[in-house]
Amino acid sequence: MEIPYNVEVREDTGVYNSKLGIWLFLASEVMLFGGLFSAFILLRTGAPVWPPIGVNGSILPLLEHTIPHATFNTIVLIASSVTMVMAWVALKTKDLGKFKIYLGSTILCAIIFLVVKYFEYTHKIHEGFVPAHDTFMAIYFTITGLHGLHIIGGIIVLAYFFGPGIKMWDTEPERFTNRIEIVGLYWHFVDLVWIFLFPSLYLLN
């Protein structure tokens, strides 16, 4: 016996295996970021001033200064989500050339996001706003750092499908399309998290 429903859909559940698997994984991710957000809310409601004032004063002026960068990053990430879903559409229409363009742009957007993030981090650290400075900086670096790790993970997987993984298209095109749908779901989720991080950490202080 071979493992069934790897590609085809099981009739009574209406999904194939990895579709269910990725959604379960995302459910656990929801709870992971939920835990981080819960801590954020608890620290925030417990603090007399937010962001707290530490030895280097308040982060607030610097933070307002970085709003344009963060806005730019938001747009980049949303765009990468759109190109991701377009890459899947391209596979559905059996257009491998278009698929490569869209997937490549997604990876490019992700890298741009990280570069901007890098300058943002180094600027803050340079000004003395390290994670240990106050609880806002702590939660800021933890959540955005973990989100950044998710981006890096995403880039690795996407790059795999852009490079060696694409061979599967010749042998099992349907399975490959499913895989792109799965990694797409993950990628949109990373985008979704950022949509909540952006106002919580940058705007509403």
């Binding site: 989500s81 759109v82 991701m84 879903v85 797409g184 779901l185 949109h188 989720f189 985008d191 979704l192 949509i195 909540f196 952006f198 106002p199 919580s200 705007l203 509403l204």
Partner: peptide, 21 residues
Amino acid sequence: ALFVGLTIAIFKGYLVAGNFM
């Protein structure tokens, strides 16, 4: 501001999850 900001974020989240996902 919190209310407005989070409402918009939830709406955006709905757009991404509903359509892209």
